[in-house]
Write a protein that binds this DNA or RNA. Structure first.
Lengths: 112, 112
DNA sequence: TTTTGATATATCATATTACGATGTATATTT
DNA sequence: AAATATACATCGTAATATGATATATCAAAA
């Protein structure tokens, strides 16, 4: 697991990216998916995930629909049009940032 | 310029990396160097840089020597042995993090 | 001549944000 | 019966980058 500081500013981008590819996902599903995708290197803790989902909904990036599944209430989140726009911005910025950091950290490394 | 959140946790790594390659540098020089290396995309503001240098010195990662240059006091910073060790750890973590983020953000992109 | 901009350092309050701790509740596995 | 996985939520804390502010020298431009 990475230092939590490194993750700052990336959680929203990750959530938006996943939801732009999956139509709808619920919180727990997102955290499991991220865990899988990163071989357990990024663990979205519930203390981070649920507040993030709520804030993103408040900001109009996501919407949700509650459904009863096996006696439990499940919140399915969808990405909004605004979220799609933000996703592009976030992801582009993140890509650019990664390239820039690579220049400093690994000057010998050149992406294809 | 990137959102400040993205930079969290990377500033120390950047400073350690530069000082591991330059024997000694002073604050302003570091900020200029980072600006150059990143085409102005990362600007270490003085409100971030000087506290960071002080904290890293307090943590034993850096040492410094004051010198008078043109009537002004200049603090030359050196990386310590502990700093060298930390640099390896930080930079490796950052590289690994970058790779992991790439997996999520650009699943089609494979580093060489 | 004055003032702007670059050089060079520093401190403090603020805002952001990920996370640990804690709580609730059901279903499944041991 | 107990432990684990599923599924959500809230609150206080800690870390940290930055804006604002301050001080001071020097060169160049207005």
């Amino acid at each position: 697991m990475y230092s939590k500081e490194l993750l700052k500013g990336t959680i929203s981008a990750i959530i938006l990216k996943l939801l732009s590819e999956h139509e709808r996902m619920y919180g727990y599903e997102i955290s499991m998916r991220v865990k899988d995708l990163t071989d357990g290197k990024i663990l979205l803790k519930d203390g981070s995930l649920y507040p993030a989902l709520q804030k993103m909904t408040a900001d109009g990036l996501l919407s949700f629909k509650e459904e009863e599944v096996g006696g439990r209430t499940r919140k399915y989140y969808y990405i909004t049009k605004l979220g799609q726009k933000e996703k592009t911005v976030f992801v582009e910025e993140l890509k650019d940032f990664i390239e820039t950091m690579n220049k400093i950290i690994s000057p010998e490394f050149k992406p294809v």
